[in-house]
């Protein structure tokens, strides 16, 4: 990158010549790249290249006998007939449909409660609900795992007090137990997003509403909830992506729950992990990753499209 006119400060007020315009244009282009450059390089290497590589290897198959060969779309057709994969997708779909609404409703309630300015200690409450987000998922899962213990954990203590034999970690309730952990982890995060959009509402609106004799509920319904719609779209998309990528929580719980409770294909991500690192089938796992990415993107896109339509109204 050599510059035609390295340092040619133009005195203020002097008229622009044609040459000057050319130089400025040239310089602007070059400056733009300088700003984008670092990002573009990192983006290419950590985002574009891995995706292209995954796409590339998903067209191959590596066998213990016979080595590596090009198989076209074989991995994909096998994936579409793979019951274990679809059961994993089904599981995270159920998880998403149940856990995301509960978590977001809780987060919205909390945000409204803090914003109502009728509570004491809101600052503490805000920090306290956000804190779980700062705890690494592995640690919080271990912690919940000990709480859930039906013999030595908190659940165990409750059992012995109440004389019940409730086992949260049994295969039937495990998904709900994981949902609880995830909700605990992320409710504060979503609450903050909601709260920040609430705090942008000018106070004059509330005063006007008060003068018009609006009740608290009417204020919530007519002013606050519409304001939260924009952030709802964001939190929904984040949450859907997050729960489709469920991995840490079930993977850590595997060492706590009975051996047969969490299968290696419990979630699509866990399935990919096991295929790749235990089964030596990284090509097939790559195909799985690509398909999962497409599914998640499609869902996120539909959600975004819907919310945009809402906002257009």
């Amino acid at each position: 990158m050599t510059e035609q006119h390295p340092e040619n400060p133009r005195p203020r007020g002097e008229a622009l010549t044609a040459e000057d315009t050319f130089v400025r244009k040239h310089r602007r282009n070059w400056r733009g790249w300088k700003f984008v450059g670092p990002f573009a390089v990192v983006f290419t290497f950590v985002f574009v290249v891995p995706i292209c590589y995954a796409l590339y290897i998903s067209f191959f198959q590596k066998k213990m006998i016979g080595g590596e060969q090009y198989v076209g779309f074989d991995n994909y057709s096998r994936l579409f007939a793979d019951e274990q994969f679809w059961s994993a997708v089904g599981r995270v779909t159920i998880f998403t449909c149940v856990q995301v609404p509960i978590m977001l409703a809780l987060a919205a309630l909390m945000a409204l409660a803090i914003d109502s300015m009728k509570l004491h200690g809101t600052k503490f409450f805000r920090i306290a609900t956000f804190l779980p987000y700062a705890v690494p998922a592995v640690v919080s899962t271990l912690m919940w795992g000990f709480i859930y213990g039906s013999k030595y954990g908190l659940v165990g203590s409750l059992n012995s007090v109440l004389g019940t034999a409730f086992d949260v970690l049994s295969p039937d309730t495990l998904l709900a137990a994981i949902g609880n952990i995830v909700t605990w982890e992320f409710v504060g995060y979503n609450m903050l997003i909601f709260y920040s959009s609430l705090s942008t509402i000018p106070h004059s609106l509330y005063e006007a509403a008060a003068i018009d004799g609006a009740t608290e509920w009417q204020i919530v319904k007519k002013i606050k909830l519409p304001e939260m719609k924009g952030s709802l779209a964001i939190t929904v998309i984040f949450s859907i992506i997050g729960s489709f990528q469920l991995f840490n929580e079930p993977s850590v719980l595997q060492s706590i729950v009975p051996g047969n409770a969490i299968t290696t294909y419990f979630t699509p991500n866990m399935y990919a992990y096991n295929l790749s690192f235990m089964g030596g089938q990284s090509n097939y796992a790559a195909a799985l990753a690509i398909v999962m990415a497409i599914i998640t993107m499609a869902i996120a896109y539909i959600v975004q499209l819907n919310s945009m339509k809402e906002q257009m109204k």
Binding site: G149, K151, S255, I256, P258
Partner: peptide, 13 residues
Amino acid sequence: TKTKRWSDDWSRK
């Protein structure tokens, strides 16, 4: 059938 080998519950039991 509920206690996994090498888990915390396992060694306690």
